[in-house]
Simulated scan of single mutants.
Amino acid sequence: MQSDVSDLETFLSDRTIDGYLIDADSETSNQRYLSGFDAPDPFVTLYADGVQLLVSSLEYGRAKRESNAETVSRYSDFDYRKKREKYDSTEANNRVVAAFLEKHGVQSVAVPARFPLSTADGLRDLDIDVTADTNDTITKLRATKTDEEIKNIRTAQRANEAAMSRAETLIREATVEAGTLHYDGEPLTSERVRREIEMELLRNDHALDETIVACGSDAADPHDRGSGPLKADESIIIDIFPRGKDSKYFADMTRTFVKGSPSETIREWYELTLAAQTAALDAIEPGVTGADVHDAVCDVYEDAGEPTLRSDERTKTGFIHSTGHGIGLDVHERPRIATNGETLEPGHVITIEPGLYDPAVGGVRIEDFGVVTEDGFENLVDYPKELIIE
């Protein structure tokens, strides 16, 4: 996958810096994005006249086949073994990286703000100028998705919908005994639903480390994972954010369900949250800001008398988070759909997830996501929004 790196070239040119350097494994999304390579151990990516990689001998063949690199070098190409006889492993590594940079005519590099301190100090000791990139240049590049990236995100969302359907089926088929949901003769717990979600995702070549299945007062905390038996007549928030095992791209969707009869407040909150989400979705087009979209949600809630962080930054109930975020190689990335959110552009993939929360009542959240297009917005979610499960 080749991405537009013209803004990176401009960043380097404007600052008369020779190259951009990343020293990390591919779980660091900027490394994965720039290198196009997936490896569990740290490796070095240099952007200077294209992508240049420095990897271990173990990863050399695969890096040549799979990465975005113009060239791939090994530590052994720069006499690592001889350097190791003279220096400790840290200094030997730094001297190899310095030699790698010299090979590519690089005497100055920009690095991410979070970069190994020992590498930065070691390169400076070897007369390489190292400048921290506090502008998050690569992160900003990642905000605008290519067609291939959007395809990967669509695929993740189809897996997400299968997992949500499995969770909803469990709740639908559960019986109610003394106010608690039961399935297969046992209480249906948040843990059981999460396990079924994870298994369904694995069947579709996706996975996740965590998901949210939160009921009642647990659902009043937006990031409470939930625990214990699920209750009838109380809201159950299910928030699933799977990642492709091969692509590494995320999807993100939330639905709120009630098995039985919700309280009047939960009914009102659900309809209000649907209205707030619709207002946000209708507001999205190139040129508006994430702050504009966030304001559309706050307007709906505040007009109905519900507190928001915009109206009261100290509120502990009501709408107590931002409207959304970008999604891609990270489940939370740019652009922000929040106060001070940046201008939206075609290719941005963003979530819209308004919600209302109060421990005395429970919580409601509804989340879709999609891509900003040349003339509006395409919702990538194809899953119904229904509160009550019979």
Rank of each mutant, 00 (worst) to 15 (best):
M1N: 09
V5S: 08
D18L: 11
D25W: 05
Q31W: 11
R32K: 14
L34P: 09
D38P: 00
L46H: 01
G50K: 06
L54I: 05
S56N: 04
S56H: 07
S57V: 03
E59R: 14
Y60V: 08
K64L: 15
E66V: 11
S67T: 04
E70Q: 13
F78Y: 13
D79N: 09
K82C: 00
S89D: 11
N93M: 06
R95E: 03
E102Q: 11
H104E: 08
G105N: 13
S108K: 11
V111D: 03
A113E: 14
F115I: 01
T134R: 15
N135A: 15
N152I: 04
Q157K: 06
A162T: 06
M164Q: 13
S165L: 09
A174L: 00
A174Q: 08
T175L: 06
G179S: 04
G179P: 00
H182P: 05
E186H: 07
I197K: 02
E200M: 07
L202V: 09
H206S: 12
T211G: 09
D224M: 07
A232F: 01
D233L: 01
I238P: 04
A251G: 15
M253K: 11
T256N: 13
R267E: 15
A279Y: 00
A280D: 01
G290P: 05
G290W: 12
Y301V: 00
R310T: 12
S311E: 05
T315R: 08
T317L: 01
F319D: 11
V331H: 04
R334S: 13
P335D: 04
T339L: 15
N340D: 12
G341L: 07
T351S: 15
G362I: 00
I366H: 04
V372F: 10
F377R: 02
V381C: 14
V381P: 06
D382Q: 06
P384F: 10
